[in-house]
């Protein structure tokens, strides 16, 4: 997946403010435009954070309804996309907590994945892992390791590596400081590398 172009906050276009304003005033076409423009991003991010198609679809719908309800509060402090990212993250985090309260631990989805896709391949070698294993298998292992990360670390890695967001944008989306973003990325990468080492 090609990372999305990083969005500079100063690039927030007038047209974006205009469409947000029209959407806030109940213009159905403007709302449709918001969905059309951002639905792929929202659905991808939801899927990457939840690892479940149905949950991702459901969450995407909830996200857009939240966007419509609260778009009158969008002040253009960030790009509309970054603002929507933040809503996705909050929804996904709440859903994670909801599942956790119902004792649906992350390991359950992992087991389901193993059942669906078979057992793990042999562990990676200590050096040059991409040369040691097929890229597809490696990707599968990293993906599973990603799912085991704490939500805050996982969301930081997903936003950086898969969505190409800058630290400042990630910080806005997660509601934390730049330093916290760097820290979470460092810990997440360390954990992922450790997961890929041979047992």
């Amino acid at each position: 997946m090609k990372p999305a172009r990083a969005i500079d906050w100063s690039e927030t276009a007038d047209s974006e403010s205009d469409i947000a304003e029209r959407c806030a005033s109940g213009d159905a076409q403007a709302c449709q435009d918001v969905v059309d423009t951002h639905q792929r991003m929202v659905y991808h991010l939801a899927l990457q954070l939840l690892s479940n198609h149905d949950d991702a679809l459901d969450l995407s719908q909830d996200v857009f309804l939240t966007v419509f309800r609260s778009i009158h509060r969008f002040r253009g402090d960030s790009a509309l996309q970054t603002w929507i990212y933040r809503i996705v993250i909050n929804h996904a985090r709440n859903r994670q907590r909801w599942w956790r309260r119902r004792r649906r631990a992350d390991q359950v989805s992992l087991d389901a994945l193993i059942e669906e896709r078979g057992e793990l391949p042999a562990p990676l070698g200590p050096t040059s892992p991409d040369r040691a294993l097929d890229q597809k298998q490696l990707g599968e292992r990293v993906w599973r390791a990603l799912n085991r990360l704490p939500f805050d670390q996982r969301s930081a890695v997903v936003l950086r590596e898969l969505h190409g967001m800058r630290y400042a944008e990630i910080a806005f989306s997660l509601g934390v400081s730049n330093a916290a973003v760097k820290s979470r990325l460092a810990r997440a990468r360390h954990t992922l590398r450790t997961e890929l080492q041979p047992q």
């Binding site: 991409d130 597809k136 490696l138 990707g139 993906w143 590596e161 898969l162």
Partner: peptide, 12 residues
């Protein structure tokens, strides 16, 4: 390679 693997996994 970690970033590549992540994108590869996401693509799958």
């Amino acid at each position: 390679s970690l970033g590549t693997a992540l994108r590869q996994g996401a693509a799958q």
